[in-house]
Design a protein around this nucleic acid. Structure first.
Lengths: 346, 346
DNA sequence: ATGTAGAATTTAATCGATTAAATGGCAACC
DNA sequence: GGTTGCCATTTAATCGATTAAATTCTACAT
């Protein structure tokens, strides 16, 4: 690899002069000299060393995306489009995206901090939950940081998410307007398998927000949420099914799944039990993932702008990186009811 | 951010000593000194500056994945799992994955080279075609590089791919064994829209390899490929459909789609034209993407181990990076016929 | 007391850039 | 001729690490 020095030697000038030419510095450089240097640069295929530059405090043009690989694989219906949005927006700004991940959340945080903290101009945190040591550390050291999909506990960390609470309300109001009164909700969470039954369930932040919206709607219609009409499912398919079945035994007339996957699994359980959707039970989801429209029946759901969330996250992060001083911001992206055929009048 | 110097000052030792402790150098360091340094490191939350280290020739533990964003979006059925495999294997090796992309292939190559060439220990190239300036440049400068899914034209560049030619043969033999004789093939390519009709079609490397396998099988059965039984489709859905229709007018009894998407689109065109699959026409795909089994009808296809391709690519790249000297290697991953219901005896 | 081996630590060069400050050269003006 | 001022260029410090070489210190034998 050719260095500044090589160019300088070849041209018989100092490295400073070469640097001025290469960086288009406002310094005066004789046109003849500039010419000579540019020629040598082209000939030797010189590329400035990114590390040396970064050492002098330049931006590296790299965004770190921190996420746990196990719970949120890339092909995930949520994470995939978010990453698409991130990469598209980063590309637009000529930045690269670095994926920082581990097989558990703890490993992810440690790895990101230990190995790569110096390399990125800023970080996007796709944390499944509110508590994050990494977020606290970064926030304290003033490194630009935006949390995606979760408002982390650490104050002072900006975040972006869809307006889950409004979405939860919209979904529930839709069911209420269709005449439903016994409306159940299915949450998702972690570590709730039977083997772990003692410990408290750790729900995803977004699921809890959506539940708040669900409660809001019920209360606005003068109803109090019935704890028996809420169930949690998780990655274990067997346990999830039995949990769903238990819920259906409570005879709800409608189910609000906190995401399309949960809704779809409910539909599957219904099919096995001979419950028709939407005739016997209305089901509404959340997300409007790519194939929600081709479900059988096509799924009524709340659409959230997943791609735009990723793009906005990059935009917010760049604002921080470039020091366009900002208050802490919790940006909420609008959601929208998409009516299809899995919900019907009672 | 705390630096080596800060630690050194706090402990009243030189930076060299701190460096030795931090790096567990074989140098002798008094246990008391070591203790003192480690304590300061913990207290100040010191992290070595990755750039300074890299400048001294250390590995950065970053793999660059170079791909054009437009043609191969992340949620793509092929690219998604490949990237999964890459990230999983990289994570296993405590490396990070940097996504280097642009909106066109040219932009991608320029960007990767211009901005980030110094940052990565090596590169994975997911090039859609054989000719790549970037690959040539990297190969010449000796930067570790593995091409994924394409054998680039530049000699000396290792590659990994599934055994497309064997797969093409397997698919065709399957159809021949079912009694089919008029077997059509659908390729995919770029820049073949009507507005671009003058220029030659640029087919994907993998599609062409599969076509070779198709020819191999036909010839082994004493048949000469009929050019009228080959069509190309591309991103433009309208033009693609008319191309598929033209092909069907040639009355094949079976169609080999060079990937599952192509096969599926053929099935759709058949449905519109009242052609039943597999009764009137057998259709076989390639890839075995995640939902090939839930197609209607479930798609017979050639499975390629997409995830493992990504993982193997990282392994090959790391071998290069670590100097475990290798010949140039073109690794071919095994493929497998998956029989489902879209193909039938004539 | 002196010399010396070996352990512990420090000094200083280095990686490849950037950039403030110093320098050199040249023309214009009194 | 000598001074001034400006332009072009170079010198040298700097970023934060690593590490060969130099140095200091300790302990022990003679």
């Amino acid at each position: 690899m050719a260095t500044l020095k090589d160019i300088a030697q070849k041209c018989g000038v100092s490295t400073a002069t070469v640097s001025y030419v290469v960086n288009n510095s406002p310094r005066q450089v004789l046109p003849a000299t500039r010419e000579k240097v540019l020629k040598a640069v082209a000939e030797l295929g010189y590329q400035p060393n990114a590390y040396a530059r970064a050492l002098k405090g330049f931006r590296t043009q790299v965004i770190g995306v921190v996420f746990p690989h196990v719970t949120v694989p890339l092909t995930n219906v949520y994470f995939g489009p978010v990453l698409e949005g991130i990469v598209a927006q980063a590309t637009e700004r000529r930045m690269a995206t670095m994926l920082l991940t581990g097989f558990t959340w703890e490993e992810t945080e440690q790895g990101a901090e230990r190995e790569f903290s110096g390399i990125c101009d800023g970080f996007l945190l796709i944390a499944p939950r509110r508590d994050s040591q990494f977020a606290s550390d970064l926030a304290k050291s003033g490194v630009p940081l935006v949390s995606v999909g979760t408002q982390v506990a650490e104050p002072g960390v900006s975040s972006i998410d869809s307006d889950n609470r409004t979405g939860g309300r919209l979904a529930t109001e839709h069911l209420l307007a269709l005449g439903h009164r016994r409306i159940a909700m299915i949450l998702t969470g972690e570590d709730v398998s039977p083997s772990n039954s003692g410990k408290p369930v750790k729900h995803n932040w977004s699921a809890l927000e959506r539940q708040h919206g669900y409660w809001d709607a019920l209360r606005a219609w003068g109803m109090e949420p019935d704890p028996n009409l809420t169930a949690t499912i998780w990655h274990d398919p067997v346990a999830s099914r039995s949990s769903a079945r238990r819920l259906l035994n409570q005879r709800p007339t409608a189910v609000f799944g906190c995401n399309d996957g949960a809704a779809y699994r409910t539909v599957e359980v219904c099919r096995e039990s001979g419950i028709r959707v939407p005739e016997d039970l209305s089901v509404i989801g959340f997300d409007d993932i790519a194939n929600a429209a081709s479900f059988d029946p096509p799924l009524t759901t709340i659409r959230q702008p997943i791609f735009e969330i990723g793009a906005n996250a990059v935009e917010m992060l760049c604002a921080q990186i470039e020091g366009r001083a900002q208050e802490v911001e919790h940006r909420l992206m609008p959601v929208e009811l998409i009516q299809r055929r899995s919900t019907a009048h009672i």
